[in-house]
């Protein structure tokens, strides 16, 4: 089973608006989730410009950017993806 890719923006604005907490995501995830998610830091996701301005912090989950990310919202997104994967596997 492929791991879910979670990329966390380490840029200035994201860091100041909450990415510092997101960077600790690995320790906050339940153990059964932890093994199925690959978390990496990225210098900047470059999604804070233009129409997305004022919506930091950003993360990218399996290539899809998520604005105003919080530990809870990211956790919820991961949970949904894992459930979807399990459903697809059982079908």
């Amino acid at each position: 089973m492929e791991k879910i890719r979670l990329e966390i923006c380490c840029g200035t604005t994201c860091f100041m608006l909450g990415a510092d907490k997101l960077m600790r995501m690995e320790t906050l995830l339940p153990e059964e989730f932890r093994e199925r998610v690959e978390i990496t830091g990225v210098p900047c996701l470059n999604v804070c410009m233009e129409e997305s301005i004022c919506r930091a912090p950003f993360v990218r989950i399996n290539g899809v950017p998520h604005a105003q990310a919080t530990v809870e919202s990211v956790f919820e997104e991961i949970r949904k993806l894992l459930e979807k994967e399990e459903r697809e596997d059982s079908e």
Binding site: T12, M23, T40, G41
Partner: peptide, 27 residues
Amino acid sequence: IVCGGTTASILERELQKKTEIDLHLVK
């Protein structure tokens, strides 16, 4: 030294490189 997320992204794009950030260092 590359200081800045956008700056690093420009170098990644132009030099075909990838930055490695170890989030275990956060603590």
